[in-house]
Simulated assay, not measured.
Amino acid sequence: MSSPDPESLLQRQAEAWWVRLHSGRATRADADAFREWATHSTAHAQAWREVMRTWSALDPLLAEEAVRQASRAGAFSLRGLSAALALQSPRRRAFLGGAVAASVTAGVMAVDPPLGLWPSVGELTADYRTATGEQRQVALAQGISVRMNTQTLINRIGADTGPRGMVLVEGEAEIVANGASDFLVETGGGRLVARAARFNIRHTGPQVCVTCLDGRVTVSVNGEQRSLEAGRQVTYDKAGLQEVVRADEASVSTWRTGILSFDRMPLVEVIDEINRYRPGKVLLRNEELGRTLVRMQLNLRSIDNAPVMIRELYGARMRSLPGGIVVLS
């Protein structure tokens, strides 16, 4: 077995020192030991400077995002928060106790983590989940197949041996129901029922969009009901259902092809969609640029190139930071 690379070893040691010194538990002895380590050699000092550069670049963005999320966050479970924090790695727990955690309550960040740099309470407790950029096929029950898109959380309804339905907590999924009884889906305050159907559900914001691709699906919200046949679509939120419209089936299923296609969509919405598939975070700091209508196609296999394409096509300034974070302005 080969020995660790000396540079990588120093980098890990420097990161460990950063966590310790920002944990709120550092002692005078720790400070003395750190001073001895950092002055041991030029390489030690360089490793520490690199770690400072990395975290110092991230801290303001994390703090700003945390404050923004706190302003729109609702109630959260302290029990869920405690469980979530207990499951974090030591480095992330320490980071939560450091400068960023001081900017807002830690509970808000556990429920809605800034920049998505650690799992939320919902992600940690979901029965099925997909990570950023991941797609997954699940046989939920006999005759029920679910294709999960990126950043999707699903919980079962009913027993493990034979769930009678599911909750789409958030994300997007295509469901094929071919069972002997009705299959139930709850999401965004609405209820869907299907027995023999193929349908797509997208719940990535306040609205839910349901598209029937084959068969028939019944959608109910606040006592209202709509019946969807193949090629029909309806959107709803907690206020109620909109009218049924004809679906652009090719657009609905584009995520299955591995291609993202945008036709005169505001750049701010394009970036939101890119962030669903790309690890890290693309942040747009230019409202005027965000209103620009975009036409472009992106291959999910090369989604990391999206910020560069936006820079080249639309003249955005680009600043790359550690952790896959890119600032466009």
Score class of each variant (00 low, 15 high):
residue 105 T to Q: 12
residue 79 R to G: 13
residue 100 V to L: 08
residue 93 R to G: 08
residue 241 L to H: 07
residue 46 Q to Y: 10
residue 253 S to T: 12
residue 307 P to S: 03
residue 284 L to G: 03
residue 215 G to I: 09
residue 270 V to H: 06
residue 104 V to P: 05
residue 125 T to E: 15
residue 57 A to N: 08
residue 163 P to E: 03
residue 221 V to N: 06
residue 302 S to E: 14
residue 80 G to H: 09
residue 203 H to S: 11
residue 211 T to P: 10
residue 308 V to H: 08
residue 250 A to V: 09
residue 303 I to S: 06
residue 1 M to N: 12
residue 281 K to L: 01
residue 157 I to Y: 06
residue 62 L to R: 04
residue 311 R to E: 03
residue 157 I to H: 01
residue 272 D to F: 02
residue 294 V to S: 04
residue 193 V to T: 10
residue 219 V to Q: 01
residue 169 V to L: 09
residue 306 A to E: 04
residue 270 V to K: 07
residue 16 A to E: 14
residue 112 D to S: 14
residue 322 P to Y: 02
residue 13 Q to Y: 04
residue 251 S to H: 09
residue 254 T to K: 11
residue 106 A to N: 06
residue 41 S to Y: 01
residue 222 N to A: 15
residue 19 V to M: 10
residue 300 L to H: 01
residue 178 N to G: 07
residue 55 W to L: 10
residue 253 S to C: 14
residue 109 M to F: 04
residue 180 A to C: 02
residue 217 V to T: 04
residue 281 K to D: 05
residue 41 S to R: 00
residue 131 A to M: 10
residue 33 A to E: 14
residue 284 L to Q: 01
residue 90 P to A: 06
residue 251 S to D: 14
residue 270 V to E: 03
residue 189 G to E: 08
residue 163 P to C: 03
residue 147 R to G: 05
residue 249 E to Y: 09
residue 65 E to H: 06
residue 278 R to W: 05
residue 16 A to Q: 12
residue 74 G to A: 11
residue 149 N to C: 13
residue 307 P to H: 00
residue 314 Y to G: 06
residue 181 S to G: 09
residue 272 D to I: 00
residue 128 Y to Q: 08
residue 232 R to Q: 15
residue 321 L to K: 00
residue 78 L to D: 15
residue 292 T to P: 00
residue 86 A to I: 01
residue 216 R to S: 13
residue 240 G to P: 07
residue 203 H to V: 07
residue 234 V to E: 06
